[in-house]
C-alpha cells in the first residue's frame, strides 16, 4: 500500500508539472464556467431548456470535460510514452508491478477530475448561484461511472496504440467528437432530438446526461447508465487483454 500511495503521489506531481494537462484537467473546467457565466445571456432562464439557465448546464459539461481531458488526452499520452521509453519495463523489474502503475494513473486522474469538478461547482455556486446537486449521491456515482468508462477507453487506447505519438493522436481524435456529443459547443438540451439520442449513448454524453439529471434531482436515464456500464466493461476487458508492457 505504501508503494502504491507513493507512486500515486509521484504521478500526481508529474501531472502537475505537465502544464497543458494540468491546466485542462484541473483548472480549465472552473475557468470555462467563470467565462461563460460572465456573459449575461448565459445567466437568463430559457424556456427552450426547461427554464434552466445555460450556465446551469455548463457545470456538468465542465465536469465531463475534465474527465475527457484526463482520460482521452492524458492517459494515452502518458502511458504510451512510458511504454516507449521503457518506464513500464523498468517498473516490471521491481516489486511494484506495472499493474500498480495503471492503478496509480487511474487514481491520479480520478482525484484530479474530482478536484476539477469541485472547483467548477464552487465557481458556479459562488459566482453565478448555480445550485449544488439536488441528489449529491447519485451525482457522485454518475460522475465516477462516467470517469471509469472514459478512463477505460483511455487505457484501451494506450494499450493498442503502436506508439506514444499514435496514442496521443487517437486520444485527440476521440476527444473532440465525444465532447461535441456532451454539449461542449452546443448544450445537448439545445440539440435536435435525434442528436440528443445519439449523444446519450456516447461515453461522455451519457455521463453528462446522468450528471445533469442528478443535479436537478432526477434519476439518470437508464440508457445512459447501461451505455456507461457497457463502455466500462468492454474497454477495461480490452485494455487488460491487449496491454503491452514494452
Amino acid at each position: 500500500m505504501h508503494a502504491f500511495t507513493k507512486l500515486t503521489v509521484s504521478e500526481f506531481r508529474l501531472l502537475l508539472r505537465e502544464p497543458v494537462l494540468a491546466f485542462f484537467g484541473l483548472l480549465f473546467p472552473a475557468l470555462l464556467v467563470a467565462i461563460l457565466g460572465s456573459i449575461p445571456v448565459m445567466r437568463e432562464p430559457s424556456p427552450e431548456i426547461g427554464g434552466l439557465r445555460v450556465i446551469d448546464l455548463y457545470v456538468p459539461i465542465a465536469l465531463v470535460l475534465s474527465i475527457a481531458s484526463l482520460g482521452l488526452q492524458g492517459m494515452p499520452q502518458i502511458l504510451g510514452t512510458y511504454r516507449e521509453r521503457g518506464v513500464l519495463r523498468r517498473m516490471a523489474t521491481t516489486p511494484a508491478s506495472p499493474v500498480m502503475m495503471l492503478g496509480a494513473q487511474v487514481t491520479t486522474a480520478a482525484l484530479t477530475s474530482i478536484g476539477a469538478g469541485l472547483l467548477a461547482l464552487l465557481v458556479g455556486r459562488i459566482a453565478f448561484d448555480v445550485s449544488f446537486p439536488r441528489s449529491p449521491f447519485v451525482y457522485l456515482v454518475s460522475f465516477l461511472l462516467c470517469a471509469a468508462a472514459v478512463f477505460a477507453i483511455g487505457l484501451f487506447v494506450a494499450a493498442v496504440a503502436p506508439s506514444g505519438k499514435a496514442a496521443n493522436g487517437i486520444g485527440m481524435a476521440l476527444f473532440f467528437p465525444l465532447m461535441f456529443f456532451a454539449g461542449l459547443w452546443t448544450p445537448r438540451e439545445a440539440m435536435p432530438g435525434w442528436l440528443q439520442r445519439i449523444g446519450e449513448l456516447t461515453p461522455v454524453g451519457a455521463g453528462q446526461a446522468a450528471i445533469q439529471a442528478a443535479s436537478v434531482g432526477d434519476w439518470p436515464p437508464p440508457q445512459c447508465v447501461i451505455a456507461l456500464l457497457a463502455y466500462l466493461g468492454i474497454f477495461s476487458y480490452g485494455a487488460v487483454k491487449f496491454f503491452r508492457w514494452s
Binding site: 509521484s10 508529474l14 512510458y82 521509453r85 521503457g86 518506464v87 519495463r89 523498468r90 523489474t93
Partner: peptide, 12 residues
C-alpha cells in the same frame, strides 16, 4: 536490474 534503454519520466 539495470537495463539498457529504460528511462524514467523526464520531469521526475
Amino acid at each position: 536490474v539495470q537495463l539498457q534503454e529504460s528511462e524514467l519520466p523526464d520531469r521526475m
